[in-house]
Every structure is written in C-alpha cells, then in structure tokens.
C-alpha cells in the first residue's frame, strides 16, 4: 500500500548526540499530533519502549523512514546504523552530528586513549585511584558485564552506512523537519543524497546589511560591547555565514549571535573550513594590504585563537582532513 493511503512507519534513533534533536522534533508543537495521526512510531528510544530485538524482528525495509541523529562513536551506534539502514526504506542523517559528525566530531582532535585519560584519570573532579577505565568486558562475581566498544574516532552516519538524505542543523530548523516529513508522506522526495535545505548560504538569509566587506581586527563576541545592526563579520566578529548552508532563516543573527556553521558547507563547497578561510582571508587586512608587513598580518590572524574549533565546530569528522593526525 503506498504511504499516502496508510500510516507512515517511522523510526527515530540517536547516536552520539546531546538529545537536542529529539527536542527539536517535539518543537513542532501541536503539529506533532498531525505526525502521530499520520505516522506509527515504531522505534524511538527516548519516547517509545521498543527493544532492539523488536527492530531486528522486522522485515527488511519495513520502516518507511528513519531519522537518525547523532554521530557514530561506539560499536552499538554503528550496529544500529547498519540495522536501521537495513530495516528502513529511507534513512535520513538528521542534525549536524549525523550529517557531519557535529560537536562530538571535535573529539577527533584527540583519540580514545587521550579522551579516557582526560575523562577518567586526569580530571580534577575525578578520584580514580584504581585507574579504572571502561572496558568492553569486566568480570564481576555475578558474571561478565559488557559495554559497547568506544571507537578511536567519531564518524558521520554516511561514513558508516548508506544515507538517503541529509538534514543538517543543530538542531535542524522546524520548518525543514516539517518539509522532510511532508515530502516523505507525499512521496515527493528529492534525488537521493540531497541535503534537505535551500541552495543558499546563511548570508543570503541574514537581515543585516553588508557594506564595507573589510575587516581590520578580529574580536571575540565578549570583547564587543554592543553588537551593531550590521554584518557581524564587518564588526570583526567571526561569523560562518558565508561558508554555511542556510535554511535556518539566520536565526542566530536575529539574536545578534554569529553563525557558527551548523548548516554545514554551502552547496558548491566540499569543505566548510576551507571555504571560510578563503572568505575571511579575502576581507581581513584588506586596508593598505600593499604595505601591510608580514608581522602585522600574523598579528591579525592571531585573533583566530582556535582555527579548528572555529571553522569546523560541527564538521570536523566529515572534513577533507577529518582529525588531528597521529605522530
């Protein structure tokens, strides 16, 4: 039976995520009732008590659409990614973490050993005299306890399994979620691999006027006494708008906060950070550039205290260079 004539079979899972995506779905307010009327929620660990074994028992492709949020960090998440891929006709990488690793992806600046060291050993608020670390198996007198394996690296969903659509955003904007749900219900889906968001940058949706297109100093937001009603970049505040895909109506800018890039790279770009470096270097130190000494350029660039965290806040795991290299 086509989806239009019956209830949509829907699943929602979380990998390495903060739970914000789950809240975003509830954020569609009373429209959630329409979704509930149109859909059967087969699997949603945060809201519905279905077991993994129930999903395993389903026929392959039984679920019409699965929204998978969160990155892949553990063996459990990886298994579920494969399982839900098999059981779902349509798998959507939902939110920045599933789509490109998200903030958990910044952990690729370290590795498992360093993370365990910081989290369980060298943490000022942790007392761990036995230096116990999580391990896959631990024996207790009642038997053997197991934990999923903690991988060395964070990956985006498409780096683990085949993904049909991407819905970035931290969390994805409500209107885009609704658009995606409606597209599935009506069967009007874009070509496989599409990002469900407009083909434009955040700047194009931003209400602020751009005029000078020149940057003489970089300032962090706390150093700015009052953010003015004009392009934040031009006020020296790093805003990832030019390198980030829109669809969010530039809502952070409405609150006088710079874009930090959760929409991922713009449609024509392979790498958000590279694009932003290009945009920034083209306007920073433009004034009198012929006479600008090297030291002055370096001093201007010192204003960017954390290049990876600034340019790949959400996208390191899926970037062209996706981690801090060993050695």
């Amino acid at each position: 039976m086509p989806v239009t004539e019956r209830k949509l079979k829907f699943a929602f899972y979380w990998g390495a995520s903060c739970g914000g995506c789950e809240i975003a779905v509830l954020d569609i307010d009373e429209k959630i009732l329409d979704v509930a009327a149109a859909a059967d929620i087969l699997f949603w660990p945060v809201a519905v008590d279905t077991k993994y074994s129930d999903v395993e028992a389903m026929e392959d492709g039984f679920i019409d659409v699965c929204f998978f949020n969160g990155a892949i960090r553990t063996s459990e998440q990886e298994e579920l990614a494969h399982l839900l891929r098999r059981k779902s006709g349509c798998l959507v990488a939902f939110g920045s973490c599933a789509a490109m690793g998200g903030i958990p992806g910044l952990a690729n600046l370290a590795n498992r050993d360093k993370i365990f060291e910081t989290a369980y050993l060298d943490n000022p608020s942790t007392s761990n005299p036995g230096r116990t670390l999580p391990s896959k198996e631990s024996r207790v007198k009642e038997g053997t306890l197991t934990l999923p394996e903690f991988h060395d690296r964070v990956r985006a969903l498409h780096q683990v399994t085949d993904v049909d659509y991407f819905l970035p955003g931290c969390p994805p904007p409500t209107n885009l979620i609704l658009e995606a749900v409606n597209a599935v219900i009506k069967g009007e889906l874009p070509p496989k691999g599409s990002v469900i968001a407009p083909e434009k940058s955040v700047c194009e949706e931003c209400r602020f006027e751009k005029s000078e297109k020149m940057l003489t100093e970089i300032r962090r937001i706390y150093e700015v006494e009052k953010v003015e009603d004009r392009c934040l970049l031009e006020q020296g505040i790093i805003c990832l708008g030019p390198a980030t895909r829109g669809g969010c109506s530039a809502r952070c800018l409405d609150a006088y906060m710079p874009c930090t890039g959760c929409g991922g790279p713009t449609p024509n770009s392979m790498d958000q950070g590279g694009k932003m470096i290009s945009a920034l270097a083209s306007i920073l130190g433009l004034e009198g550039e012929e006479a600008l000494p090297d030291e002055e350029i370096e001093r201007l660039l010192d204003g960017i205290v954390d290049p990876v965290g600034t340019f790949y806040k959400y996208g390191l795991a899926a970037a062209l260079i996706n981690r801090r290299l060993e050695g």
Partner: peptide
Amino acid sequence: NYKTSRKIRLLRRLLRELNM
C-alpha cells in the same frame, strides 16, 4: 596575490592544529 598570502597563512595555522 595579497589575498592568497593571507589565505595560505591562515590555512597553515589550521594544518598545524591538525598536526599536518
């Protein structure tokens, strides 16, 4: 060429952080 000089400087800072 001025722009490129700044792009490369900034890119090199990024690469350093990625241990490249």
